[in-house]
Nucleic acid binder design. Sequence first.
DNA 1: TATCATTGAGCAATCGATTGCATTTTTGTT
DNA 2: AACAAAAATGCAATCGATTGCTCAATGATA
Lengths: 339, 339
Amino acid sequence: MNIKKNITIHDLALALNITASTVSRALNDNPRISDATKKRVRLMAEKMGYQPNVAAANLRKGKGNNIGVIVPRINRSFFSTAIGAIEEIARTKGYNVIIAQTHEKYINEVESVITMLNARVDAILISLSAETKNFEHLEQISKRRARLVFFDRICEPMNAPSVELNDYRVGKDVANHFLDMGARKFGFLGGPDFINVYKNRWNGFIETLMANNLSNEDIIINTKALTREEGRNAGLQLIENRQLPDAVFCVSDFAALGIYQVLREHNINIPEKTMVAGVANEPFTEFLTPGLTSVDQNSEAIGKAAVNLFLNEIEGQETEQIRKVIEPRLIIRGSTLKQ
Amino acid sequence: MNIKKNITIHDLALALNITASTVSRALNDNPRISDATKKRVRLMAEKMGYQPNVAAANLRKGKGNNIGVIVPRINRSFFSTAIGAIEEIARTKGYNVIIAQTHEKYINEVESVITMLNARVDAILISLSAETKNFEHLEQISKRRARLVFFDRICEPMNAPSVELNDYRVGKDVANHFLDMGARKFGFLGGPDFINVYKNRWNGFIETLMANNLSNEDIIINTKALTREEGRNAGLQLIENRQLPDAVFCVSDFAALGIYQVLREHNINIPEKTMVAGVANEPFTEFLTPGLTSVDQNSEAIGKAAVNLFLNEIEGQETEQIRKVIEPRLIIRGSTLKQ
DNA sequence: TATCATTGAGCAATCGATTGCATTTTTGTT
DNA sequence: AACAAAAATGCAATCGATTGCTCAATGATA
């Protein structure tokens, strides 16, 4: 027969002629247990192939060892890299990482939060969906004694621990770079204004222009999706304009790509005629010809910071600031390098 | 005070003046409970904000509602897309998806398997690490009453359900395409031979050439990592050769990229002088100039098939074949299109 | 009306680990 | 040698849901 029942601490106790409590304490390295006993227990556990029943422990302790991560889409370089970083750290601390994607739908976000809470996650690290404007589901989290950490797309009013990119500086750096390259007329392709990320990029961009007595009132296009397709539409709009801008800033690389392609199809030279810059430093940006100037979001650092915010919190290190800002890095490539 | 204890089925039972067993059965839609009672229970559960304690249920039932997914790296377009597909389906069926990455290390794979088993996953969907040659840890899975499904990087001898790309055809299609384009001398940059994926690509490639009375014995480079860096090294090796091949097939886009870049840096025209093709259809391949011919692995289909293999199995639909093969799609771009 | 199904619901044990409190054993002190 | 203090271990309740078995109520049938 190969259907051996799972070994429990009671089996170990029996074999060692001690009680289950002692076994439990020994395995948890409780100081009340002598080193000798601990050693015996561990040896026997090894020998009998003991594997703890996490569900039982969870039930008793009222918590699991899980961290939930909710993002719009997993197969976005930014998110998958952040998740990778999160997983790496979480695992060394004994946490499992449960993932969910919202596909930018509010309803999916709500459901994922509930499911994760039921699965007894100790924390939810979340990057909000584009649709999310109501936050009741997130308030459930603390009521159910789990932690909440925002990253990237945060909800400022909730005042929860959060990690965000310095998106203001994203806009500022790009604007300054454009100015350095001699641009005087600007285009801007932005996203929904209620998402902090997009709002801040816009602010950083426009305020820097204004500080230089310039503006780009005419050529602002706000889109909802920031896909390549939307980028193409925006590009067509630009071309229909009587006068092309010297430089266009897109808050997303994919949208930038759309513009980029339309411009090239219309034989409008990048960067000589119009410069283009995006955000995310997606892998493909490097390989366009010319390369697409973009802003690296330091996704790995963001992921790491997010888990660490949680880990520090439960380890009682309140010293850490509750709101972490990661600095972006402007990657200058051919699309903004005029000779 | 806001520290209300969690509502349990006992609280519901008390409020409804029935027993916890009845509540449990009602919530699980057990036919032994009348519709009237079910309705009352559900209403009260809603009203009191009842949320099940999954740990308790898991403990009692001896299983969780989790699916574990283990891959080399999450932030690879292929894997993140596959995981995305898995998550999407799993969630609709009430499963949580727990992820882990091995970074191609055997030891990480072993540890992840153990942790996941302890977390009571119902299944582990795995794409093996490049180092994995020993499979004891995987045998644990069935002993602990969980299912095992391989995808992409599989272990043939274990004869477990698996989903793989038709990698033989990958090699074959590329070879045929090269032949169509008039190539007669070939380079090949491959990976470790004990990984099914690489072996099959090689076989498909070489056997197609041989069927045409050609070979490429001279120019085979096997590497371990298949990174861009390794690709560059391989590219340099090619150039040092007295005679460049007409076409080079790299079993990975990143490695192909390395070769591609080195060739360009040495002003060797692609495709006129040498054609290059890769595998994975990474997003960047489309945006190189010229575009990099590659083979799409249909990662979404692979992910879907993997979960479904598991889901069908537990739903008792043994009709499905246990070994699924997904067809690749050759994407021809400029890097192999001679005028 | 008596009898037997049938249906609906309750009882109580169970899953395996944890933990407050009690008890036993050991060590140290005078 | 006697006893307090400290160290090590045991006892038993507990976490919340599930489930085999028993019991009660309702209805059908002769």
